[in-house]
Simulated scan of single mutants.
Amino acid sequence: MKNSLPKISGPWKLMLLGDGSPTRHLQLLTNQETKIKLISMRVDPLFIEEGPKELNQLNGPLIRRQVWIKNNNKNLAWAESWWNAEQVNENLKAKEEPIWKNLTQDRSELFREVDRISLVNSNWLEDQFCCKGPFWSRNYRFFRDKKPLTIIREVFNPHLETLLGYSGIKEFTKLYSSSS
Rank of each mutant, 00 (worst) to 15 (best):
Q66P: 01
F111L: 08
N139M: 00
G51E: 09
S137G: 15
V43G: 00
V88Y: 07
P158I: 12
Q128N: 04
K74M: 08
S118N: 03
I99M: 10
L125V: 03
I152Q: 03
G20N: 10
S4Q: 06
S180M: 02
L26N: 07
L38H: 09
L103H: 09
L16A: 06
Q27P: 00
F142G: 01
N75R: 07
E86M: 01
Q57S: 15
N72C: 09
L29H: 12
R64Y: 11
V43H: 04
K53D: 14
E97A: 13
L14F: 05
K35C: 01
Q57F: 14
D106G: 07
E97N: 07
E80A: 00
E96A: 14
W78H: 10
N56I: 15
W124L: 04
P22R: 03
R138N: 12
S118R: 07
G168H: 11
W82A: 06
Q27D: 01
P158N: 03
W100S: 05
L163S: 14
P11Y: 13
E90I: 07
C131S: 14
K174G: 01
Q128S: 12
K2N: 14
A79K: 00
K147F: 08
S179F: 04
D127H: 00
S118H: 02
P98L: 08
S21N: 11
A77Q: 05
Y140K: 07
S178P: 09
R64T: 04
K174Q: 11
N121R: 15
F111G: 03
L16D: 05
C131P: 02
K13H: 12
L92K: 01
P98N: 04
Q57E: 14
L164S: 08
K35V: 13
K146P: 02
E154F: 02
S167I: 08
D106C: 11
I48L: 15
E90R: 10
L119H: 10
F111Q: 11
L29E: 13
T173L: 00
R138Y: 03
E113S: 07
N139G: 00
N157I: 08
T162Q: 08
K7Q: 06
I36M: 10
K2V: 15
E171L: 11
S122E: 07
A79I: 03
Q105R: 12
L16W: 07
A79Y: 07
N73K: 13
P148R: 06
L46E: 05
F172M: 02
P158T: 02
E96T: 15
A94R: 12
D145E: 15
S122H: 04
N71F: 04
D127G: 00
Y166F: 04
E161W: 05
R153E: 14
I99L: 12
S167M: 09
Q87L: 12
H25S: 09
Q27V: 09
N102D: 08
I169K: 12
I48P: 06
I151V: 15
L92G: 02
G18Y: 09
M15N: 05
K146N: 15
H159F: 10
T150R: 04
D115N: 13
T30P: 08
D106Q: 11
E161K: 06
P61Q: 04
L55A: 01
T162W: 10
D106V: 10
N31C: 08
N84D: 11
N121D: 10
L38I: 12
H159E: 06
I69W: 06
E161Q: 07
S4G: 00
I151G: 03
S108W: 10
K53V: 09
